[in-house]
Design a protein around this nucleic acid. Structure first.
Length: 260
DNA sequence: ATGTCACGCTGGGCGTGA
């Protein structure tokens, strides 16, 4: 199974790049985050024209997640929303069974600042995600992929000294992410690229991408019965393309999984 | 900390979020 996780920062603004990604990688599933579109305005037709279909969970202006799957592949038991999540109105979780694997696309709250109320919401969301993920894993192969908005280790940010009093690197957030990995879940990128940088996000501002000021905050977490064949971050999609179509501030994480 | 982007609302800049 070729699985891609990508925070697109608006699926309408990013549509040319999404179609480019589907054409280039021909993935079995794309876990999409930050679609930033209401359900009725989701670009189903354009995605259908290239042989894919979207299962989406949408809020409207903010958030929004989706799974893009080849049109001829059966998708079973799609479910939008995370049981026990702090704010069900924020569309941050969608899951479905694809080729016998329970696949989740998740967009964890940013948290803003450690002192902000949204920081506690972020931790509660991670806890609800842990409960649901481990419940699903008891039933079979499971992959959670998305923008987790946490850098697991110091080396997962460009300069840990720049993160004093910042979110994404606190012990509480890292504990929340580590808890997702319990029970044999594999951090797919680290599994096959233990010494690579693996940044997936660079601020649009200050030439951060050019200067290597990135973070590894997008992950694919695979249950133990799935073998990770390869994983890489496709940074081509963090640059303008030849037609001048703009990038997201995240690059796609491309993972190959061997099914049991 | 911020040099950017995308949204809705609205009729072209502003407020919000990241």
């Amino acid at each position: 199974m070729r699985l891609i996780s990508w925070n697109v920062n608006s699926i309408r603004a990013r549509l040319p790049r999404v179609l480019e990604l589907l054409d280039h990688h021909r993935p079995d599933v794309v876990c999409v985050q930050e679609t930033k579109v209401a359900a009725e305005a989701f670009p189903h037709e354009a995605i259908g024209e290239v042989g894919y279909r979207a299962i989406e969970h949408s809020e409207g202006r903010w958030n929004g997640v989706a799974l893009l799957v080849p049109s001829d592949v059966e998708v079973a038991e799609p479910l939008g929303g995370l049981p026990g999540e702090p704010d069900p109105a924020e569309a941050r979780w969608i899951e479905a069974s694809i080729a016998g694997v329970r696949v989740i696309s998740v967009y964890v709250p940013n948290g803003r600042e450690p002192s902000h109320p949204m920081f506690a919401v972020k931790l509660r969301f991670l806890e609800a995600a842990r409960e649901r993920l481990h419940e699903l894993a008891r039933s079979g192969p499971t992959v959670l992929a998305g923008d987790l908005n946490v850098a697991l280790e110091d080396r997962d940010v460009w300069d840990i000294a720049a993160f004093v009093d910042a979110t994404h690197v606190t012990p509480e957030e890292r504990a929340g992410l580590s808890a997702l990995l319990e029970g044999g879940f594999q951090d797919a990128f680290r599994e096959v690229a233990p010494d690579d940088e693996g940044f997936t996000w660079w601020d649009y501002r200050m030439g951060a991408f050019r200067r290597g000021m990135g973070m590894r905050i997008d992950y694919a977490l695979a249950s133990r019965e799935l073998q990770v064949r390869s994983a890489h971050v496709d940074t081509v999609f963090r640059r303008n393309n030849d037609q001048g179509d703009k990038p997201s501030d995240h690059a796609p994480l491309v993972v190959e999984l061997e099914l049991p």
